[in-house]
């Protein structure tokens, strides 16, 4: 038996259509699988994502425009699914304080494999 690529792409599509938005925050504790969302989210950054779908994967781009969040020290980010009721992931990086002319761009790849 082998899991077919069509099945993996079906799961990819289900995930893709379930993507709601992305959001950034200022929490700094390390990301753990037990997290249920961001530590300190900034609702101004809850924005639509740009999603590029290819074979067995999706690429999610979250852009925080220069007009949003000036002075905030962003250090965490997530992809939300299920109409915003579920966080799919959480990443943490060293804080990056946003200037008036800065735009932040998060690009995340998600892969669907059989092993």
């Amino acid at each position: 038996m082998v899991t077919l690529k069509t099945c993996l792409n079906r799961i990819r599509d289900l995930f893709n259509t379930d993507i709601y938005k992305c959001q950034a925050g200022t929490g700094t504790t390390a990301a753990m699988a037990s997290n249920t969302g961001l530590e300190t989210e900034d609702s101004n950054t809850l924005l639509d994502a740009t999603v590029v779908v290819t074979d067995k994967c999706v690429q999610v781009t979250h852009t925080i425009a220069s007009t949003i969040g000036e002075g905030e020290a962003y250090s965490e980010q997530e992809i939300q699914i299920n109409s915003g009721n579920t966080s799919a992931n959480r990443i943490v990086h060293t804080a990056l304080t946003k200037g008036a002319n800065d735009e932040y761009i998060y690009i995340t790849n998600v892969f669907f494999n059989s092993v």
Partner: peptide
Amino acid sequence: EYINIEEGPTKVNKKTYSGADGFILNH
């Protein structure tokens, strides 16, 4: 046979605008 959903790397880019040209709504 396991179906694996793998969170890949996330790239964090900062784009900084400079100069006197261009337009950004609400900026």
